[in-house]
Structure formats: structure tokens, C-alpha cells
Measured scan of single mutants.
Amino acid sequence: MTGIVKWFNADKGFGFITPDDGSKDVFVHFSAIQNDGYKSLDEGQKVSFTIESGAKGPAAGNVTSL
């Protein structure tokens, strides 16, 4: 699925993605970002991701920028 990064705190390594389908915002951890180098996201960035079952509920996985 796709969405827009609502916010991401690079110091803490997590944030939230707002899915394009209008569903509830999804937690994203830096370890789910699939790019080389520094793993961070920018507010407003368009991303593709999967929904994984995290310890505290749904979380984004396999996050790639579009």
C-alpha cells in the first residue's frame, strides 16, 4: 500500500505514515526503511509499505520511497 509520511523523528528513529486509503495512521520504525545509508523519512514524503504485526499493534514494514 502507499501513503504519506505524517512525521518522522530521526533522533528517536520512528514516526507515522498516513495511508492513502484513509485508514488509521501506521507506526513506522527506522529498521523498516529499505534504503541504503541513513534510514530516515521526511514529512510529506510518498512511500510504499506493507502492514506488519508489531508488538504494540500494526506497524509499517518494507518501507520504500516513491
Rank of each mutant, 00 (worst) to 15 (best):
Met1Asn: 09
Met1Asp: 04
Thr2Pro: 04
Thr2Ser: 08
Thr2Cys: 08
Thr2Glu: 06
Thr2Ala: 06
Thr2Trp: 06
Gly3Gln: 00
Gly3Met: 01
Gly3Asn: 00
Gly3Trp: 01
Ile4Val: 13
Ile4His: 09
Ile4Gln: 08
Ile4Asp: 03
Ile4Cys: 09
Ile4Ser: 09
Val5Arg: 00
Val5Tyr: 01
Val5His: 01
Val5Ile: 08
Val5Glu: 00
Val5Pro: 00
Lys6Leu: 06
Lys6Pro: 01
Lys6Ser: 06
Lys6Val: 06
Trp7Glu: 02
Phe8Asp: 01
Phe8Cys: 02
Phe8Asn: 01
Phe8Gln: 01
Asn9Thr: 04
Asn9Arg: 12
Ala10Leu: 09
Ala10Gly: 11
Ala10Ser: 14
Ala10Lys: 14
Ala10Asp: 08
Ala10Arg: 15
Ala10Trp: 10
Asp11Tyr: 15
Asp11His: 13
Asp11Leu: 13
Lys12His: 09
Lys12Asn: 05
Lys12Gly: 05
Gly13Ile: 02
Gly13Val: 01
Gly13Leu: 03
Gly13Asn: 03
Gly13Trp: 02
Gly13Met: 03
Gly13Pro: 00
Phe14Leu: 05
Phe14Ser: 03
Phe14Lys: 02
Phe14Ala: 02
Phe14Met: 06
Gly15Trp: 01
Phe16Trp: 10
Phe16Met: 07
Phe16Ser: 03
Ile17Cys: 01
Ile17Met: 02
Ile17Val: 04
Thr18Arg: 14
Thr18Asp: 03
Thr18Gln: 11
Pro19Ser: 04
Pro19Met: 06
Asp20Met: 09
Asp20Asn: 07
Asp20Val: 06
Asp20Ser: 10
Asp20Gln: 07
Asp20Lys: 04
Asp21Gly: 08
Gly22His: 08
Gly22Pro: 03
Gly22Gln: 07
Gly22Ala: 06
Gly22Met: 07
Gly22Thr: 04
Gly22Asp: 05
Ser23Pro: 05
Lys24Trp: 07
Lys24Ser: 13
Lys24Met: 14
Lys24His: 12
Lys24Cys: 10
Asp25Tyr: 04
Asp25Glu: 11
Asp25Leu: 07
Asp25Ile: 06
Asp25His: 05
Asp25Arg: 04
Asp25Pro: 07
Val26Met: 05
Val26His: 02
Val26Gln: 02
Phe27Met: 04
Phe27Pro: 03
Phe27Glu: 02
Phe27His: 02
Val28Cys: 07
Val28Tyr: 04
Val28Ile: 07
Val28Leu: 07
Val28Lys: 00
Val28His: 00
His29Trp: 04
His29Lys: 03
His29Val: 04
His29Ser: 05
His29Thr: 04
Phe30Cys: 09
Phe30Arg: 12
Phe30Ile: 09
Phe30Thr: 07
Ser31Cys: 07
Ser31Leu: 09
Ser31Tyr: 05
Ala32Asp: 06
Ala32Trp: 03
Ala32Gln: 10
Ala32His: 07
Ala32Pro: 02
Ile33Ser: 03
Ile33Arg: 02
Ile33Phe: 06
Gln34Thr: 13
Gln34Ser: 11
Gln34Val: 14
Gln34Trp: 08
Asn35Lys: 15
Asn35Trp: 10
Asp36Phe: 10
Asp36Thr: 12
Asp36Ser: 11
Asp36Asn: 12
Gly37Tyr: 10
Gly37Phe: 09
Tyr38Ile: 12
Tyr38Leu: 12
Tyr38Gln: 12
Tyr38Pro: 14
Tyr38Val: 12
Lys39Pro: 10
Ser40Gln: 11
Ser40Val: 12
Ser40Glu: 07
Ser40Tyr: 15
Ser40Trp: 13
Ser40Leu: 11
Leu41Pro: 02
Leu41His: 01
Leu41Gln: 01
Asp42His: 15
Asp42Phe: 15
Asp42Cys: 15
Asp42Pro: 08
Glu43Gln: 15
Glu43Leu: 13
Gly44Leu: 04
Gly44Arg: 05
Gly44Pro: 01
Gln45Ser: 11
Gln45Asp: 12
Gln45Leu: 08
Gln45Arg: 06
Lys46Trp: 12
Lys46Gly: 07
Val47His: 01
Val47Trp: 01
Ser48Trp: 14
Ser48Tyr: 12
Ser48Met: 11
Phe49Gly: 00
Phe49Met: 04
Thr50Asp: 08
Thr50Ile: 14
Thr50Val: 13
Ile51Lys: 08
Ile51Trp: 09
Ile51Ala: 04
Ile51Arg: 07
Glu52Trp: 11
Glu52Val: 15
Glu52Met: 13
Glu52Gly: 07
Glu52Ser: 10
Ser53Asn: 14
Ser53Val: 15
Ser53Met: 15
Ser53Lys: 14
Gly54Trp: 11
Gly54Cys: 09
Gly54His: 15
Ala55Tyr: 13
Ala55Ser: 12
Ala55Gln: 12
Ala55Asp: 14
Ala55Val: 12
Lys56Val: 09
Lys56Pro: 08
Lys56Met: 12
Lys56Thr: 11
Lys56Ile: 11
Gly57Ala: 06
Gly57Tyr: 08
Gly57Asn: 07
Gly57Thr: 05
Pro58Val: 12
Pro58Phe: 11
Pro58Met: 09
Pro58Ile: 12
Ala59Arg: 15
Ala59Lys: 13
Ala59Ser: 13
Ala59Leu: 13
Ala60Ile: 03
Ala60Lys: 01
Ala60Thr: 03
Ala60Ser: 03
Ala60Trp: 02
Gly61Cys: 14
Gly61Tyr: 14
Asn62Thr: 10
Asn62Ser: 11
Asn62Gly: 08
Asn62Pro: 03
Asn62Ala: 09
Asn62Trp: 10
Val63Gln: 01
Val63Ser: 01
Thr64Leu: 15
Thr64Cys: 13
Thr64His: 14
Thr64Val: 15
Thr64Met: 13
Thr64Gln: 14
Ser65Tyr: 12
Ser65Arg: 12
Ser65Cys: 13
Leu66Arg: 05
Leu66Ile: 12
Leu66Cys: 11
Leu66Glu: 08
